[in-house]
Computed example of a mutant assay.
Amino acid sequence: MSTDRRPVVLVVEDEPLLREMIAFEFELSGFEVVDAGSAEEALQRLTQMQILDLLFTDIRLPGMDGWSLATEVRALHADAPVIYASGNAERQELLPRSEFVQKPYRPQQIFEVAAGLGVDLPQAPME
C-alpha cells in the first residue's frame, strides 16, 4: 500500500465461527477488521468509523439483509467496495464496485475479488 495506514474492512456475518474465521483471514493479510453479527450492529459500528475500505457482508442476516445494508453503507461511505456472500440467496442487481461470492469460498477467492474491486491489499494473502 502507498500509506502506512492499514485498510479497514467491515465484516458482517451472523454465524459467529464463520465471522471469526473471515476476520482472522483479513487480519492475517494486514487489514484492520471491524466485525458485526447483524446489519443493525454493523450500522452502529459504522457511525464510529471515519474510513471504510471494504464491506464484506453475508446476504442473509437477521433483520436487515446484506443488500439493504450495502445501500445504507454506501450512503455513508460512497466509494466503499462491497463483497456480498451467500450460500443460497438469490442474486440481485449489484451496486457499482461490488461483487458476489458463493459460499463455500476460499479465503484466496475473497482477496482476488477485493483486488478486482480496487482494494489495495496490504500484503499477499497466504493460500
Rank of each mutant, 00 (worst) to 15 (best):
I22H: 00
I22F: 13
I22W: 06
A23Y: 15
A23C: 15
A23G: 15
F24V: 15
F24T: 15
F24I: 15
F24C: 14
E25A: 07
E25K: 04
E25S: 14
E27M: 14
E27P: 09
E27D: 14
E27K: 14
L28P: 00
L28S: 09
S29M: 08
S29Q: 01
S29I: 05
G30S: 02
F31I: 12
F31D: 02
F31M: 08
E32S: 07
E32K: 04
V33R: 04
V33E: 10
V34Y: 02
D35F: 12
D35I: 07
A36T: 12
A36Y: 13
G37R: 06
G37A: 14
G37T: 09
S38K: 04
S38E: 05
S38N: 04
A39L: 06
A39S: 07
A39C: 02
A39K: 01
A39P: 00
E40L: 02
E40I: 03
E41S: 13
A42Q: 06
A42F: 11
L43K: 04
L43T: 08
L43E: 02
L43P: 01
Q44G: 02
Q44C: 05
Q44F: 07
R45Y: 11
R45N: 10
T47I: 10
T47Q: 08
T47A: 11
T47Y: 08
Q48V: 15
Q48A: 14
Q48P: 00
M49W: 11
M49Y: 14
Q50N: 13
Q50A: 12
I51K: 15
I51D: 15
I51L: 13
I51M: 13
L52K: 03
D53F: 08
D53M: 08
L54V: 15
L54A: 12
L54K: 03
L55Y: 06
L55A: 08
L55F: 11
F56K: 00
F56M: 02
F56V: 06
F56W: 05
T57A: 12
T57V: 09
T57H: 04
T57I: 05
T57W: 03
D58M: 03
D58T: 12
I59F: 00
I59D: 01
R60P: 01
R60W: 03
L61A: 04
L61K: 02
L61Q: 04
L61E: 02
P62K: 03
P62R: 09
